[in-house]
């Protein structure tokens, strides 16, 4: 195990390269998720606003 971690004397280079790679993989997953969630939120708000406007218009038509 110690041998494996030592990477034949190249430990710092090999492990940092793999570290950067996996950090990038995880970052991409997280940021894609976050982006999706934000867009869904915006869409929900927009849909609610639209509906609100529609019902108000209908009500106005009723009143007059």
């Amino acid at each position: 195990m110690a041998d494996f971690l030592a990477m034949g004397g190249y430990a710092e280079f090999v492990w940092s390269a793999f570290g950067v790679w996996f950090a990038c993989v995880i970052f991409n997953i997280v940021s894609a998720r976050r982006r999706m969630r934000a867009s869904i939120e915006r869409a929900t708000v927009a849909a609610a606003r639209q509906r609100h406007r529609a019902t108000r218009k209908m009500r106005q038509r009723h009143d007059t």
């Binding site: 869904i40 869409a43 929900t44 708000v45 927009a46 849909a47 609610a48 606003r49 639209q50 509906r51 609100h52 019902t55």
Partner: peptide, 11 residues
Amino acid sequence: QDLFGDSAGAG
């Protein structure tokens, strides 16, 4: 609106 309108409920 069809997709996300329901979950927001009638505002």
